[in-house]
């Protein structure tokens, strides 16, 4: 159980770091495509007798690079590339899973099995997490600008293609290690939900990044406790907790806005005054 907490915490730190960039690049479905493709890697790993996470990592990297390649071919409908790889990944996983002898083992990757994690996987998660975190911190400013405005970033001298390439690899690696813990079917919500929550509060990009990590850590810790004592599946519990929290935030914000409007009487008055101040 202690091991589950350690692994959960590491992933709770790196998944939203990747997630915020994925969300802001409008690629929320990319996490889905990669995690579903990772199942094909898991199945291949189980068949070939290599560690499923390693198999998932290899297939994820290949899938991520394929998405980028297809995206360049059809730039106007680039989101199709995600759908193509997603279906190819699921198809391959479906066919390969027919050859997997131990079906329970394969199923554990669908919804995750953070509690039953091996020594090797623990070390793998720790190494990958450190690498992703270091890369994210080093590339913080570059990723920010590429996400904000790719063309302007190129003009400012940011090596956009290299940054995008490194980010694609980071995403693929993160998704494949996360599929073991929270499960392949829900890893993309772990990328999106904490970011969605943090975006409701963040007063800057930096705050949004820190906020989404904080939310993910909180969801993971509380989710693991709940799942342990209520005997629920941990992956699903963590994600459901996040979604519930997000809905609660929206509700509270709505109520606060309505109350504020009622108290002030004229809700637009303040912003109109602020706008008037700008003009010299």
């Amino acid at each position: 159980m202690r091991r589950a907490f350690a692994v959960g915490l590491l992933l709770a730190v790196i998944i939203p770091c990747i997630g915020i960039v994925v969300v802001l690049k409008r690629l929320s479905m990319m996490g889905d495509a990669l995690s579903h493709s990772s199942l094909a890697g898991v199945a291949a790993g189980l068949i070939l007798g290599i560690n499923p996470i390693v198999g998932a990592g290899a297939v994820c990297v290949a899938a991520a690079l394929s998405i980028e390649a297809i995206r360049k071919r059809i730039p106007k409908y680039s989101e199709m590339s995600i759908a193509i790889i997603l279906s190819a990944g699921v198809g391959l996983a479906g066919v390969l899973s027919g050859f997997v002898k131990n079906a329970a083992n394969f199923n554990s990757f669908l919804f995750g099995s953070i509690v039953a994690i091996s020594d090797f996987e623990m070390i793998l998660v720790a190494c990958v997490s450190c690498a992703v975190l270091v890369a994210f911190v080093l590339l913080y400013k570059e990723l920010f600008y590429v996400t904000l405005d790719e063309r302007a970033a190129r003009l400012a001298g940011v090596p956009v293609r290299s940054v995008n390439f490194v980010f694609t690899i980071l995403t693929a690696v993160t998704v494949s290690v996360a599929s073991r813990t929270v499960g392949a079917l829900i890893v993309s919500s772990m990328m999106v939900v904490p970011t969605a929550c943090a975006m409701q509060f963040g007063k800057s990009y930096r705050q949004t990044v820190i906020g989404s990590v904080a939310f993910a850590v909180a969801f993971t810790l509380i989710g693991l406790f709940l799942s342990y004592y209520a005997r629920l599946k941990p992956g699903g519990t963590i994600v459901l907790l996040g979604v519930a929290c997000f809905l609660l935030i929206l509700l509270v914000k709505k109520v606060a806005a309505l109350r504020g409007a009622a108290r002030r009487g004229a809700p637009e008055a303040e912003s109109a005054r602020e706008r008037a101040e700008v003009l010299p």
Binding site: L24, K25, T147, L148, E150, R151, A152, Y205
Partner: peptide
């Protein structure tokens, strides 16, 4: 901006 006007940054 290519990412739209609601990008969460100051």
């Amino acid at each position: 901006l290519s990412s739209g006007a609601n990008f969460p940054a100051t």
